[in-house]
Design a protein around this nucleic acid. Structure first.
Lengths: 235, 235
DNA sequence: TTCCTATGTCATCCAATTGTGATGATCTGA
DNA sequence: TCAGATCATCACAATTGGATGACATAGGAA
């Protein structure tokens, strides 16, 4: 599952961090973690996850400060953040939310509750990232069963084509350069020729389109590819 | 399944307690826990769960003593109790069962085994809460008698193949990676080669499929295996 | 002990998948 | 309309991943 939602844990108490990692991973999330606020900030310069679990008190750079900074960067302005606050700091919650966190949880918290909040927030912010199935027009992609259907018929996609379609359908309308697609759909740091993306897009098209069906994959010359957000509407 | 069965864990080793909680919760149970025998007794005055996992050696009030007391209270006389005993205390099992426990498990135990016992005991006590048999098409798996039939004929599966089929049939359609299967069907932390899963899937297939019968086990290249949710429908 | 079953590993075979280079089609702007 | 830039496809060789049969071992049953 290359496209599972990524969560960054920023927490200096290692046992808690591990507990969170363990539980989140078994929920199917891809987890990264940092023990210090400043480390986290560096990681966020490299790569932006889908959600951040942020401890309030941190060495290096406090959670609240990091939160504030993230809200100022344009690329993390809307990044979902859940603050972890210790009991007794509850009064700070107002300050926390004012600083821009989307939610907060008071330690010690129950794991299921945290998981529920994480799920709720992700669903609110990017429903497609967590939906168990994606649909557009007569195209239907089911993640849990790894099936893709168009109309009634079941389609057979190779692993790469599946991930590619999944990625594009999660973000209909948005255009991705070949480099971006290589980063997200292939593994990071892939040394693959950009032209290879063309080939896979071609394979994907061949797999999902019958002779005279409409093609939901749009080529934007000079820019990249996208999933047609109007696919399924109008004629 | 109306509401999820509640399970009380009484165990002073925190890591083990968390492990149990985690696994039970992901099986859909509602979990409460206590670290001391006397705490547990207090909790049991407040609210009676559907089943208790009780450590033999406990601070405050020993497991065996707690067990005995519970058997004397009219409202907990029939409360299902599974004792957790350490290796070397096995001889005590007789005393444990004599004291009124319904089952016991020797530490270190395999998680699937424990889950199986929990399920078995709950089924025995309140059969309606858990399905005792799984069916799909002409496949029929009976948990309590540990038998599997296809059409009329009885199939012979090894223990591992049985658990594997049971696990997959419980979640038809969902795809599981080899790592997930190792976690859930084997025991957690198993240091087993992922390829071993292939072998067992192969054995399972050989056991349940006659020469030209449809295979309900789906291989999803690059992702894992699943039980075909369409098995039994259409041609 | 001896036989038998269940398991985990390997080695090997086979088929699906994948990245690339070549080639032809299209589009863009001058 | 023409040249260069971009894409779409194809064929192909290499690689990967999955299926299968053989084997050694561990544990139980007899």
């Amino acid at each position: 599952m290359t496209t599972s939602p990524r969560i960054l844990i920023v927490e200096d108490e290692e046992p808690l961090s591990l507990l969170l990692r363990y539980n989140l991973e078994s929920e199917g999330y891809a987890v990264e973690s940092a023990m210090r606020g400043d480390d986290a900030e560096l990681m966020l310069k490299e790569h932006i996850p889908d959600l951040v679990l942020l401890d309030w008190m941190l060495p290096g750079l406090s959670g609240i400060e990091l939160c504030r900074r993230l809200r100022q960067r344009s690329d993390t302005k809307n990044l979902p953040i859940i603050l972890l606050t210790a009991r007794g700091e509850e009064d700070e919650r107002v300050r926390g939310l004012a600083t821009g966190a989307d939610d907060y949880v008071v330690k010690p918290f129950s794991v299921p509750e945290l998981l529920a909040r994480v799920g709720a927030l992700l669903r609110r912010v990017s429903p497609n990232r967590v939906a168990s199935s994606l649909e557009a027009g007569d195209l239907h992609l089911d993640r849990s069963s790894h099936r893709v259907r168009r109309g009634g018929r079941e389609l057979h996609l190779g692993p790469t084509e599946f991930r590619l379609l999944e990625f594009l359908m999660e973000r209909p309308g948005r255009v991705f350069s070949r480099a971006q697609l290589l980063d997200h759909v292939w593994s990071m740091d892939s040394e693959i020729d950009e032209r290879t993306v063309d080939v896979h897009v071609g394979r994907l098209r061949k797999a999902i389109n019958k002779p005279r069906e409409r093609d939901p994959v749009r080529t934007i010359r000079g820019a990249g590819y996208s999933f047609d957000e109007n696919f399924g509407r109008k004629a």
